[in-house]
Design a binder for these strands. Structure first.
Length: 576
DNA sequence: CAAGCGACTTGTAAACAAATGG
DNA sequence: CCATTTGTTTACAAGTCGCTTG
């Protein structure tokens, strides 16, 4: 058994141990899969479900009807009230109409989709009300599909595929103020799909009567299939699950790069502080931007094409309007106020005191500029990353985010964990360390709609528990008194039983209180992203080992699969 | 060096499943 | 047992970054 286990480890982490995979840049030797699963074909509405135009029922052609259902399904969503969404939808919908329909349907406001909307609501209600057997049957069918299409063979391993289903057609839902929201995401056909697999594998078969766009054998990439999406014209891929060797290895490499940064970060910090004094504007800008990326964990900030996406920025693309300078604020000097929309249009708002030199530089960068001008007009991500590459092999802007996130977790864990705490209390400390990172990375969330209520529920539980506890304590007291009076075995036992009960309830109460604290502190903060993408899992694994916390308390099943490499490798003395 | 493409990681929302409580 | 709440998984959008091309 041990030999088998070691062999498994060896096979799995072969390339972890011996150089970085293949030396020629190839990602695999053998790749075999069944191809993607396509979205089910459109099922026309039953005749009694009608669409009304200008108050009158109107039968739509299949294509026009399908697109109409996309809108009808979203009627309760805020999207359908937005002007841009409606405009884009209507424009694309009209493209799918027959010329007759086109001439008739000229105003979206005269369209009544409510019957269609009711129908879909009823459908989903019916789905919920299905019997156990029916639900079981659907589950089994899904499982069958997963078993057939959800796995591939890459080199010597059967690997889980991340997304083996092709995205179904629908209306594009951009985030924030996206100029393309509401546009029709068209149906993907086999003729749109490029298949990637090895020559010597059994090639996937396209559905009967269809052809793939292309079958290629490129082992310099990791994807199994790809297609071009019609909204931005970008390529979408079918790739492996995070538990796969190829993703795990990459993940591990990412953290190793961040650890190399740890070794030279002092040098780099001294360097950019020096560069604040440079006579060259571009170097000063580069140095100030890098300072922000390091100190505030900002993203790099590539330029974006105007009108194609929501207006969001990162460090290099900050504009004058996104910062305010305060020479004095309250009792602090040289305060910079940031207020901008970052990735996914999440607001970044922060006020931080900076060093005088940085402040003076910022004032300089702002001179003679309009609000919509670039703050760093002599800088972009490409220039910055080229510079970083010279400072350290493999260094790019995002490595700072990884590094600062992981080092913060490690240091916070050290600071917050009390060895004598109970397990729930230690987990609270872990979550607090995790929270420090999430705050650094600005991983916010809208407070859940049911937050107040769920908080109240928890409080009621705590109150109940407290009552229980005082009752149990009373009983214990009584039992003790009883024992003192009688001194018999029976009453002695009773005292023990009551003592145990009190202890149990105390523990339960403490657990609830910890849970309440944790939830309250987590109101506006999302821990998931940092846990999954920024925190070296070996730090967490080592922490669990050191304090005897079962790993299941920190990582759920999916996360344990993703971080299997770290769980296998890290010991209790692991240092990031 | 700007523009654009390609491949990959990172991010939130929504759907779904499991757990909990009345 | 069902309804509600909570945790997990999926979907897919939105970033980063390297490379090519003109």
């Amino acid at each position: 058994k041990i030999v088998l286990f070691l062999r498994k480890l060896f096979n799995r982490y072969h390339s972890f141990l011996f150089s970085h995979g293949y030396t020629d840049g190839s990602k695999w030797r053998f790749l075999e899969h069944k191809g993607p699963v396509f979205a089910p074909p459109y099922e026309p509405l039953p005749g009694n479900v009608k669409f009304y135009y200008d108050g009158k029922p109107m039968k739509l052609s299949a294509l026009a009807e399908e697109v109409a259902t996309f809108f009808a399904k979203m009627l309760d969503h805020e999207y359908t009230t937005k002007d841009i969404f409606r405009k884009n939808f209507f424009k694309d919908w009209r493209k799918e109409m027959t010329s007759e329909e086109k001439s008739k349907i000229t105003d979206l406001n005269k369209c009544n989709f409510s019957e269609m909307n009711e129908y879909f609501k009823a459908q989903s209600e019916a789905r919920k009300q299905m019997s156990k057997e029916e639900k079981q049957k659907i589950k089994e069918e899904n499982e069958r599909l997963l078993q057939e299409y959800g796995f591939c063979i890459m080199d010597n391993h059967k690997e889980r595929i991340g997304n083996f289903r092709i995205e179904p057609p629908g209306l594009f839902r951009g985030r924030g103020d996206h100029p393309k929201m509401g546009m029709l995401k068209r149906r993907i056909r086999p003729e749109d799909i490029i298949i990637n697999c090895s020559k010597d594998s059994k090639h996937p078969k396209p559905p009967p009567g269809t052809k793939w766009k292309e079958v290629r054998h490129d082992n310099k990439v990791t994807w199994l299939a790809s297609w071009t999406e019609n909204i931005q014209g970008s390529i979408k891929y079918i790739m492996l699950n995070p538990s796969s060797r190829i993703k795990g290895e990459k993940d591990w490499q990412k953290y190793e790069t961040a650890r190399r940064l740890k070794k030279c970060v002092d040098r780099i910090r001294n360097q950019y502080r020096d560069d604040w004094k440079s006579k060259e504007m571009r170097i000063r800008q580069r140095a100030v931007a890098l300072y922000f990326i390091d100190k505030l964990a900002l993203r790099a900030g590539n330029e974006k094409e105007e009108g194609e996406t929501a207006d969001t920025v990162g460090c290099c693309s900050l504009r004058v309007e996104h910062i305010k300078l305060y020479p004095k604020m309250d009792d602090q000097e040289y305060v910079v106020e940031f207020d901008f929309l970052g990735k996914d249009s999440i607001r970044y708002y922060n006020k931080i005191p900076v060093e005088k030199r940085v402040f003076k530089n910022l004032q300089l960068f702002l001179e003679n500029k309009q609000p919509e001008d670039d703050l760093f007009d002599r800088l972009n991500t490409s220039i910055l990353n080229k510079h970083l590459q010279e400072l350290m092999d493999g260094l790019t802007a995002k490595v700072f985010r990884t590094y600062n996130a992981s080092i913060t977790l490690q240091q916070q864990l050290k600071e917050l964990t009390c060895p004598d705490d109970s397990i729930p209390a230690k987990i609270l400390s872990y979550n607090r360390a995790n929270r420090a990172v999430a705050i650094l990375c600005n991983h916010q969330r809208a407070p859940p709609k049911t937050f107040e209520k769920s908080m109240q529920n928890l409080q009621t539980k705590i109150d109940e528990k407290q009552n229980q506890l005082s009752a149990a304590r009373k009983q214990l007291k009584a039992a003790k008194a009883d024992h003192k009076a009688s001194h018999d075995e029976k009453s002695k036992k009773a005292v023990e039983v009551k003592r145990k009960a009190v202890q149990r309830i105390e523990e339960q109460l403490m657990k609830l209180q910890v849970q309440a604290t944790d939830r309250e502190e987590n109101k506006q903060i999302a821990l998931g992203t940092s846990k999954l993408n920024y925190l070296d899992p070996r730090i967490s694994v080592a922490w669990c080992k050191k304090y005897g916390i079962p790993i299941e308390k920190i990582y759920n099943k999916t996360q344990r699969e993703k971080f299997a490499w770290a769980i296998d490798m890290a010991e209790k003395d692991y240092e990031f």
